[in-house]
Design a protein around this nucleic acid. Sequence first.
DNA 1: CATTGATACATGATATATCAAAAAGGGAGC
DNA 2: GCTCCCTTTTTGATATATCATGTATCAATG
Lengths: 226, 226
Amino acid sequence: MQAFTDIQSKSLSAQIYSQLRYQLMAARMQPGVRLKIRELAQSLGTSETPVREALLQLVRDGALEMKPGYYIRVRRLTLNEYLETREIRLMLEPHAAVKALPHVDKAFIEQLEKVHETLIRAEADKDYPAALLANYEFHFLIYRRSGMPQLIEILERLWIQIGPLLNYLYPFGHPSYDGPHQHLHILEALRKRDAEALAEAFRADLIEGGRAFVRYLESIEPEATQ
Amino acid sequence: MQAFTDIQSKSLSAQIYSQLRYQLMAARMQPGVRLKIRELAQSLGTSETPVREALLQLVRDGALEMKPGYYIRVRRLTLNEYLETREIRLMLEPHAAVKALPHVDKAFIEQLEKVHETLIRAEADKDYPAALLANYEFHFLIYRRSGMPQLIEILERLWIQIGPLLNYLYPFGHPSYDGPHQHLHILEALRKRDAEALAEAFRADLIEGGRAFVRYLESIEPEATQ
DNA sequence: CATTGATACATGATATATCAAAAAGGGAGC
DNA sequence: GCTCCCTTTTTGATATATCATGTATCAATG
């Protein structure tokens, strides 16, 4: 959870931003839910200023949206918006993984295997929040080894846009594995140090995971006009 | 300039943000220059709040940097940071162009040709600010046709990081064309509707343009430790 | 003359106050 | 019972006040 734990010695607004970002990524916030500056400030025990600053940044990140002058709510991605996100991720995530490859050692792969086991166990237990976190950790442990901080930042921004959708997703259809879990292909490619297979495994994971999104969004789209 | 002209009916902080972003992109701000909230607020005739909000967002964009609690200044990219930026752009910009291809018509190409002429003329006149703007316009006119707003947002964020560097660049070595201008290859690929050639032309333009950056940053690097 | 420490000052961070606009609620009229 | 209009309330936006911390200055001391 690296990215989210450094919540100290930072400005209040940065702390709040990190915290909200974490909640978004972890699907703790439903799309469309309204956020009120005053309420949040009160519940956090701070003034409105840092809360507002945090929210504004999330708006710019595309994780929240703001009706012109008025209210702020968790963004509701349309199917097309989701597809664009996926298209961008398809370019960037495999690349990040390939860049990480030279910095992958045995210990790291074992660490990933543990995280993956956690993921599988969580899914078996239907503990979806835990599964989401494990999935995030699996991916970003790898990306962080790329040594490309800017790229990682871009990817995290994309993930927090998608996070809230996961709320709807799990009840709906969620990870439907028709074969072995894609993460296993990823692990295998890492072991073999096969860059092309690695990139392909990431693409497959993304598309595989995306199917449920697309199905869900298609089923919702008609009413999502607002 | 589309992205920068909608400076009305937006919140003050959004206006200030847009304005600063424009100045960054257009190389109106030197790397390392310090920005003071109070000063800016005064010179803009507003209070500090919206200025601070705008600056914070630019910090998150990586265009400005902030010594922990202390001062805010225009970010100074290291060579490695620049190279990472370029690496990301190399993935995204050619793709954006290819996605734009289906929406390119004759009129649009003529528009691009005009912009390119402006660029060439500006360079001949050594009017570098104008050249920069024309170059920005040339690229983003194309990217905007991709119909991928998120991608464009990501790219603009990358461009405003690089903008300030251009200050140093032009005096230094700047666009050294060893052959025909890369934009001509881009235009040709657009006319032929040749996606692969188009992608390649964008890659070439990026690398070509990047050479001067790299040369400059390498010459500077030793002292840039701070 | 160099060094150190105390004080004044500048600046970003946070809190609070004020404003304007939008939403929500309620009552009068049909 | 429904609709329209007015009032009240809520809320985000902006301005201002306060706080904490880093920086600079300068004098006292060795």
